[in-house]
């Protein structure tokens, strides 16, 4: 009988031990040598990739101090929605104050909001960026858009692919132009793709693709337009009251 409290104590210690070990393993083994006050994005935001794949370029953020100079050796931890993985998930900034990680997208298609946090001196500083995960339909849309649409709709020009955007008397909307395209319903977008600009009394410079693309292809392009739109698109569907 007298041993029971002792047994309880041992059990409690064991549980605590396991818990602590778990805790210490999850906390970072990295020892920061400095701390900054601000964190800014360097490169690697707004990238696109298929769900579950690694983004083509790494995500790079920079930690600065009060004066805006880069801080070396500050801890940066990356976090994202469930399924998004970082390699590495925590890193110390390099000699130019930058922390670099490779992002593997999660399994849910859509906008993945990813954050990079540095503990900072007084309070943590965070920067949030959006990456875009493409499901099957959006990815198909992005391939078709590259084949048929982006030569005019994407104003970005490169030596390999010269954009036709500047040559058009009526400028087409970039697919990321959420300000305009979010106001159009899926049916509107479909009829413009299918029957050309004049279907909605818009420019005849947009030709009809209804005889060239299958209905599934056109839906895929619409899905792609929705996922890249900035500001993000939210369908005006049923409003669910609690």
């Amino acid at each position: 009988m007298t041993r029971r409290p002792v047994a309880y104590a041992v059990l409690l210690l064991m549980v605590a031990g396991i818990g602590c070990r778990h805790w210490s393993a999850s906390s970072s083994a990295l020892k920061p040598t400095a701390a900054g006050t601000a964190i800014v994005l360097s490169s690697g935001d707004k990238q696109m990739g298929a769900t579950g794949t690694v983004l083509p370029s790494p995500l790079v953020v920079q930690v600065n101090d009060d004066q805006g100079t880069a801080v070396t050796g500050a801890l940066v931890e990356f976090q994202g929605p469930a399924g998004v993985r970082f390699d590495p998930a925590a890193v110390l900034t390099d000699s130019s104050g930058q922390a670099t990680t490779n992002v593997r997208l999660g399994t849910i298609a859509g906008r993945d909001l990813v954050s990079a946090t540095t503990p900072g001196k007084a309070h943590p500083a965070t920067v949030q960026v959006a990456e875009i995960a493409l499901g099957y339909q959006q990815q198909l849309g992005s391939i078709l858009a590259d084949q048929f649409c982006n030569r005019c709709h994407d104003p970005e020009s490169s030596a390999q692919r010269v954009s036709n955007y500047d040559n058009l008397a009526v400028k087409p909307h970039a697919f990321s132009d959420g300000g305009t395209l979010n106001k159009m319903s899926d049916a509107d977008l479909l009829s413009v793709i299918q029957h050309g600009g004049p279907a909605l009394s818009r420019s005849a410079l947009m030709p009809p693709y209804g005889k060239t693309l299958s209905p599934a292809d056109m839906q895929a392009i619409i899905a792609y337009i929705r996922v890249v739109s900035d500001p993000p698109y939210s369908p005006a569907g049923t409003v669910y009251g609690k």
Partner: peptide, 21 residues
């Protein structure tokens, strides 16, 4: 020039048309 708006991609009159593709 009007109904099919081919000038969006093709050039015939190099002074007016600009289509590049």
């Amino acid at each position: 020039y009007s109904r099919y708006a081919c000038q969006s991609c093709h050039i015939i009159d190099t002074k007016v048309d600009k289509g590049y593709i």
